[in-house]
């Protein structure tokens, strides 16, 4: 269990009231992040993002699955069933997210300790990405309406932790989805109204996921004392009494909002936080997109020399 002494907590709280954080940032400043995409060769898309020391690796795999409509009752895959319960249509694909916090990130994640936080983070991701607010065009993932569709599996592996896990995960997810390629399918009518499809093996033919530009990122705002900060470090998170997570897309629309931890807020502070989050979110997305473009340019020049994970 991570602990913090009362004097340290007091020091951090008073510093934030005076707009001075331990590492010299202002209350609404983000740390720098480094990003690399396309590093897991067996995945359809991948990304590794390091926000200072918080380290997240995302692998995206696309697989073909059945469209589960509301009329089938199959208790085996409860995670997918939850997603489907919120969807009625039989011509949409789906996104299934799962987060795994590796014990290398923190002692609390050993054995079954990570179950709660894994479940919470996976649920938030599933809620944000499945639906029009998630940006991705789920209808374009459908192959044969009512029967087969593409399922996008987003698997998150948390390798190291220094605060602000959810923001890192969403930034990396957005980059990984930009990097993902779905193979092209050709549908053939073999008579009797039955449809069959063929998957093209050509890598060049694979398409980008439609709507990846509208995938939102989250901004986590931590209330410490009477002020709030953005992008908290692990120590600052231990001083937080209320945390608000706001998902913002590139148009400045709010896609999700959730409060966590044990405190309460003034409605006026909440309103102010929403407005700040909107501005910060848009800037974050712009920075991320610029970095991704830069990476594409560098990759084409360096003849795909990958830096690999850590070397």
């Amino acid at each position: 269990m991570a602990l913090i002494s009362p004097s340290e907590k007091d020091f951090i709280t008073k510093g934030i009231e005076a707009d001075m954080r331990n590492d010299g940032r202002s209350r609404i400043a983000y740390r720098d992040f480094t990003i690399e995409t396309g590093i897991v060769s067996q995945a359809s898309g991948s990304c590794r993002l390091r926000l200072s020391k918080t380290d997240v690796l995302i692998g995206v795999k696309v697989e073909i699955g059945d469209i589960i409509s509301n009329t089938t009752s199959d208790n085996n895959n409860e995670q997918e069933q939850d997603i489907v319960n919120n969807q009625n249509e039989s011509d949409k694909g789906r996104i299934v997210c799962s987060v795994e916090c590796s014990p290398s990130a923190s002692r609390d994640f050993e054995g079954k300790g990570a179950n709660d936080i894994n479940n919470e983070l996976s649920q938030i991701m599933n809620r944000v990405l499945n639906g029009p607010q998630g940006g991705i065009d789920l209808k374009s993932l459908c192959i044969i309406p009512g029967a087969q569709c593409w399922i996008i599996y987003v698997d998150v592996l948390v390798l190291d932790y220094d605060g602000n896990l959810l923001d890192t995960i969403f930034l990396a997810t957005r980059a990984a989805l930009q990097n993902t390629r779905i193979p092209k399918t050709e549908i053939q009518d073999i008579g009797n109204g039955q449809l069959e499809f063929d998957i093209s093996d050509d890598i060049e033919d694979a398409e980008k996921i439609k709507g990846w530009e509208d995938v939102p990122v989250t901004v986590s705002l931590n209330k410490i004392g009477q002020k709030y900060i953005v992008d908290a470090t692990a120590m600052e998170e231990l001083c937080t009494d209320t945390k608000i997570i706001i998902a913002v897309n590139r148009n400045g629309e709010i896609c999700a909002m959730q409060k966590s931890l044990y405190g309460s807020l003034n409605p006026s502070l909440l309103t102010e936080m929403i407005r700040t989050a909107k501005d910060i979110g848009k800037v974050l997305i712009k920075n991320l997109d610029t970095t991704l473009e830069h990476e594409q340019v560098m990759a084409s020049r360096a003849n795909n020399k990958k830096f690999g994970f850590f070397i």
């Binding site: 809620r127 639906g131 607010q133 709010i254 896609c255 409060k259 807020l265 003034n266």
Partner: peptide
């Protein structure tokens, strides 16, 4: 006069 929880999904303007 304190908000103890807020939960929102779906696209909305700020």
């Amino acid at each position: 006069k304190q908000v103890t929880h807020v939960l929102c999904t779906g696209k909305m303007e700020a």
